[in-house]
């Protein structure tokens, strides 16, 4: 019942707005290194990048993906580039338009009755994210292509949430975030994950349980 309206809302938001999985921002400030992790049963990603300018970051990423029925597994190692295309700094809000892209090697395995296949291919992963945030509200929409020859695992996600209260800069702020996401060709479901997010000036963590009752954990850290 909740999924059906989302299937309408998601494309609309994607058009109106348009990252990779989870976060407030996919890169840190100039000359900083950012590490990120996103883990659940079917999607596990570890990512690190270095911001060479306030707007550009290069990094490496490793992603493991698995189909809901466990018949397909994918492992992707990429070199990534992140670009802040546009930032809107408002008195009580910030909005960003990001480009994220990667080029890497995909190792795939398809298990079918009597016909198991494994393959290696070059994969490209260009995508965009739009996010809008105040001290109380967070909205984000992401679409990223995951393409290789005869492979389409395009990723779409929308997120919305609110903070329980405003905090001082030195204090940890709790948020409630809901994410809906889908990866084409690996899952026919829309994965919906309500999460608790804790933001501090030194760390960013999220934890929740999705609509298949699987746990999810995300983190970000800037060095």
């Amino acid at each position: 019942m909740f999924v059906k309206p989302l299937s309408v809302i998601m494309p609309c938001l994607a058009i109106l707005l348009s990252y990779q999985s989870t976060e407030a921002a996919p890169m840190g400030f100039s000359e900083s290194t950012m590490a990120m992790g996103d883990f659940n049963n079917n999607w596990r990603e570890a990512f690190i990048n270095y911001a060479i300018t306030p707007r550009d970051a290069f990094g490496v990423s490793a992603t493991y993906m698995r189909a809901d029925d466990k018949t397909k597994t994918r492992t992707l190692e990429e070199l990534t580039y992140t670009r802040l295309l546009k930032r809107w700094n408002m008195p009580h809000a910030q909005a960003n338009l990001w480009f994220m892209g990667g080029l890497g090697m995909l190792q795939g395995e398809d298990k079918q009755a009597g016909n198991d296949q494994s393959f290696d291919e070059i994969m490209v992963t260009p995508g965009v994210q739009f996010d809008y945030e105040t001290t109380r509200v967070y909205l984000a929409a992401t679409h990223r292509f995951y393409r290789a020859s005869d492979i389409n695992h395009d990723y779409s996600a929308v997120r919305a949430g609110f903070s329980f209260y405003e905090t001082e800069y030195d204090r940890t702020q709790p948020w409630f975030i809901v994410e809906a996401r889908n990866m084409n060709g690996l899952s026919e479901k829309i994965e919906i994950t309500p999460m608790l997010r804790f933001i501090n000036k030194n760390f960013f963590i999220e934890a929740g349980v999705n609509n298949s009752r699987e746990p999810r954990f995300n983190f970000m850290y800037i060095f």
Binding site: A24, A25, F29, R87, W88, N89, M90, H92, A93, Q94, E133, T134, T135, T167, Y169, D170, R171, Q173, I199, N200, K201, N202, F203, F204, M220, I222
Partner: peptide, 9 residues
């Protein structure tokens, strides 16, 4: 634009 402690660090 300063709305998030993690980003403003």
């Amino acid at each position: 634009g300063m709305v998030c402690a993690f980003c403003a660090q």
